[in-house]
Design a protein around this nucleic acid. Structure first.
Lengths: 215, 215
DNA sequence: GTCTATAGAGTGATAGAC
DNA sequence: GTCTATCACTCTATAGAC
């Protein structure tokens, strides 16, 4: 007679359930936090979106802030990696071209992540204090340094302030996630299609590269 | 401007006390809504910020939404007026130079207004549906038409999509209001001074005008 | 592990004394 | 016009039955 060991082992059948539920909750939370901000989001609505009783959320995540951090940390990991990859030795034109495409595609593929990050910054970033204090300025300076070297090599117009160029790279690309409603309304569409994103990439790349004097 | 969202304050005799209190409430509400979004803001905190009993807010404004519209309508009035002033007959270089300066100065002088507008759009604009439906697309097309005429006159590079150029003008300038926390953190400052804003104007103007092929 | 039931604080809004 | 006191409701979070 076969022995049922499932009830004796640490291998719980619910381990799979846990993983599935946590993922459902995180997805629901991402939508809620993006739509309402941290303070405006409600655990009740997140539970409803995740198709789970409200108390289960508190079983899987300690509290509202814990759930928020779980969502936010995934975003932060993605955030600065692309800019960190820029190197002074690389070709300026192809580096920036690649960077602009990556960022726009990120706006297209992860609009909720971008909006949660934007919401957090707009509201004064009370949950990002560690992110913006611990060596953020130093990291940023290492990024502007790349552009300064390009300037010394005559590859980038001297009258450009590198820090503000970086802000331009950020703002122009993230706009397609954060302001998607306004952008699509202006274009008379419900949402943007791939052709729109390609047009955005083409126009931004043209203006920024040419405007920086990069050949 | 596509639409004027009229104030919801009603028409009551404007005594001196009333005027002063309403202004205090509006200022407090602007801060709260900018920091927490519509859903996250609380009437209690607004009242506290305005140094008034909570019930007074309801005396002066019908409800939370009415107060929000009162704040928002002031913003909307300011919002598109500068872009509406662009004309095909005008000189492209000086028009865009002026526009960029105006928008950056707006970000500097009215950061809260910019953030409330951004918050509203990020959260799906449930209170701006009339703004984005009634003739918004038509108004936007009349704006892109200016750039198209400049292109036909050879004043603007042909490979540029006018609509995306407008998005770039918006995003690059509003960034200094909405993401002020990140910008100042990157620069290692508590807040930006006038020199920073001038540098932003210089860099943006250089890149965008040159990048568009405008002489 | 799951979910009902509920505590306790906070929400928008209002009635009514002053 | 002003403000206290309070209502009905929703919020986060938890205790405890299953």
């Amino acid at each position: 007679m076969p022995l049922d060991i499932s009830s004796h082992t640490g291998e719980k059948p619910a381990g799979r359930i846990r993983q599935k539920n946590e993922q459902q909750i995180l997805a629901a939370a991402e939508q809620e936090f993006a739509a309402c901000g941290f303070k405006g989001a409600s655990m009740r609505d997140i539970a409803e979106r995740a198709n789970l009783p409200k108390a289960n959320i508190h079983y899987y995540f300690k509290n509202k802030l814990g759930l928020y951090f779980a969502v936010l940390s995934d975003i932060i990991d993605l955030w600065d990696s692309t800019l960190s990859n820029l190197r002074a030795e690389d070709d300026a034109a192809s580096s920036l071209t690649k960077y602009l495409r990556k960022k726009i595609e990120f706006s297209r593929d992860h609009p909720l992540a971008s909006r949660i990050f934007a919401s957090e910054i707009i509201s004064g970033g009370p949950n990002l204090d560690r992110y913006f204090t611990e060596g953020y300025e130093e990291w940023f300076r290492s990024r502007t340094a790349v552009f300064e070297q390009w300037q010394q090599q005559g590859k980038l117009d001297a009258s450009i302030a590198p820090s503000h160029l970086i802000f331009l790279l950020w703002s122009s690309t993230q706009h397609y996630a954060d302001f998607a409603l306004q952008v699509s309304s202006a274009l008379g569409k419900k949402s943007l299609d791939n052709q729109d994103y390609e047009q955005a990439i083409t126009t931004l790349t043209h203006i920024i590269l040419k405007g920086c004097g990069i050949k």
